[in-house]
Nucleic acid binder design. Sequence first.
DNA 1: TATGAATGAGGTTTCATTCAT
DNA 2: AATGAATGAAACCTCATTCAT
Lengths: 205, 205, 205, 205
Amino acid sequence: MALLKLLIEEGQITDPDSPRGRLLDQAAQLFLQKGYERTTVRDLASAVGIQSGSIFHHFSSKEDILKAVMSEALVYFIEELRAAIEAAQNPRHRLLACIRSELQFTIGPDTTAVMSLLISEWRSLSVEAQGDILHYRTRYEQQWLDVLNAAKEVGLVDGDVFVMRRLLAGAIHWTTTWFQLDGELSLEALANETLHLVCSGDSQT
Amino acid sequence: MALLKLLIEEGQITDPDSPRGRLLDQAAQLFLQKGYERTTVRDLASAVGIQSGSIFHHFSSKEDILKAVMSEALVYFIEELRAAIEAAQNPRHRLLACIRSELQFTIGPDTTAVMSLLISEWRSLSVEAQGDILHYRTRYEQQWLDVLNAAKEVGLVDGDVFVMRRLLAGAIHWTTTWFQLDGELSLEALANETLHLVCSGDSQT
Amino acid sequence: MALLKLLIEEGQITDPDSPRGRLLDQAAQLFLQKGYERTTVRDLASAVGIQSGSIFHHFSSKEDILKAVMSEALVYFIEELRAAIEAAQNPRHRLLACIRSELQFTIGPDTTAVMSLLISEWRSLSVEAQGDILHYRTRYEQQWLDVLNAAKEVGLVDGDVFVMRRLLAGAIHWTTTWFQLDGELSLEALANETLHLVCSGDSQT
Amino acid sequence: MALLKLLIEEGQITDPDSPRGRLLDQAAQLFLQKGYERTTVRDLASAVGIQSGSIFHHFSSKEDILKAVMSEALVYFIEELRAAIEAAQNPRHRLLACIRSELQFTIGPDTTAVMSLLISEWRSLSVEAQGDILHYRTRYEQQWLDVLNAAKEVGLVDGDVFVMRRLLAGAIHWTTTWFQLDGELSLEALANETLHLVCSGDSQT
DNA sequence: TATGAATGAGGTTTCATTCAT
DNA sequence: AATGAATGAAACCTCATTCAT
């Protein structure tokens, strides 16, 4: 939260109380609910309470909105992940922090829409736009790989770290289709269960 | 393959050499490549080499095509999964058979498009159509759950089987984003690696 | 009835038991019910129990069907009207015969659809086709005018016979919107009431 | 005229100088000339001088245009008829007022298209739309019936008023097919002639 | 900044008609 | 005579985007 405010102040993320920010929020919701293509600029405008023409004072095109949603989400995820990793004290905790953070992004109350969009609407971007966003994704993934490599070096996990990252990514992203935050399984428990997928670990230090 | 021919003869799956079948094949490819919404019926018609109006002799609407792609795929997956399970000789092999089959559907050369569509274009169906297709999905999932429950009874896996199925589903479906059939990792090796995610197994009987 | 058979034998009207005749019958029903434009060739084919392509063995176009329905109806109406006039014994009865006949065409059980079509779908004909059919209409109207002129000569009616014919035509055609054959008012009573519109007559000889 | 302006100011009828109003005017002309089905939205758009897509800013569908034409016409007819009846001083004059008004709607220069449409394109409305419009028609007809019943009470006419109304409606509507405003017969004379159809009148007070 | 009417390209779908079988 | 798949023009309608106000 504090981190989010900082990023807003720095101008890296749009203030959610500004018209542009409200637009981005609603866009994330609607794009996820109905899909990018099936969401019309009019839908979006009326969700925000403005006229459709007015949207183009804030964004140059509909795709520009999707790009902004994605890139701002990634900026935030990158920073949040960095902070979580830094706060952890050993390779195992750092790996758990990655898992917990990504689960949080995926199924936590505030970011679930944008996280899912990154995956579900990737093809809705033009090739050029994909290139722009890929930049951010690479930076995000690099942090995961660093943590996994470190875990491998101390024998916490073994096997191909690329494959491992991908199996984990799949398992985590998929939670969006079934996990209920208010269900019996807590996010923390799920994070632990997910950690066990890759490190059949013993003591939980 | 033999199974596929049987289903075609029984009329449960459209003959891929018929006009309707060619349409379904191309639709699966295009819907996956460009997305359902961004694929126009004109695209589809020209991919098959007919006029756009002619499509509506075979299907009553564009959505009807997507429904047919999905339901025929599921009919095939259900039968293929059943056969694979029946051919396996113990709970461990049956679970491996499930994993291998679903990996095969996901990244094997013939079915990858339709398997991915089932997930990526689910929201493109109207609610009614979703209900129709859900029928098939439920039958498919039930086979997985039966196998996982049997595995749990003999102590092969432990934990919540629903959660386990879902983590596995996520991991497997995600392979579509990264796995290369002609890469270093074989499908069989990946299946084994995936099995280890849930059963930290011992003897590989 | 006897007259109808005669006309069929003479080939002036298509035998209603032939495929062509069944097509014409159904066409009249459907064109009236749904309108010519909203009736598709497929509707028509399936009403008759054949395939849409087969219709074009009997008629060269959809409009050709409408033309045939109209011209055959007029051929029959002309002859029926002539017979009714000839059977009547004085100017008053001849006028009543005209009224009764036209009411019969309009609301009688067998001809109501085709009679209404002549009016409601007139604009659906191309200009050329209108010219063709107008021929028949003129012959039909001439018989009315002859009877009205004769009635005027004996002082039965007065005023402009053209105007009178048109007021009567309107009143009679309009019955199609409200008259119930099985209601309280008989067709004969309605004919008499209609006659009174133009000849405030006395004795009902 | 004054009445029309009032209704426009009240918002019950669209201002004919607004884009929507121009659209309605042209629609009435074209629907009558070519028929609703044969009039395309492009025809309509080009008659008004806009692009076909722009029509859908004003109406949600083509049928919506037809509905609006009909309901606005009826709103006007209802009010005009009411005013005409109120201005007349005795039952005979009130009946004449009804006849004259309806003749005016039918063959008068401004309303002839919409009046005819109400009859000729009724079947082009969906069943639901017919229900909506029927509302207005009923209110219009009730005024006629009230006047006819009052005329019957004072012995001006006799017979079934429903039948009488329908014979009159038929005769009046039919004038659209033959009456020429600039011909020998004046509208006033025709109104009187029509009145005589039902009340074989005496003194012409 | 905001509006909202207008654009115009392009989408899905319809349907009379053709023609090889 | 009949079939029914295919045609292809044209229908209604959608929607991102523009622009005068």
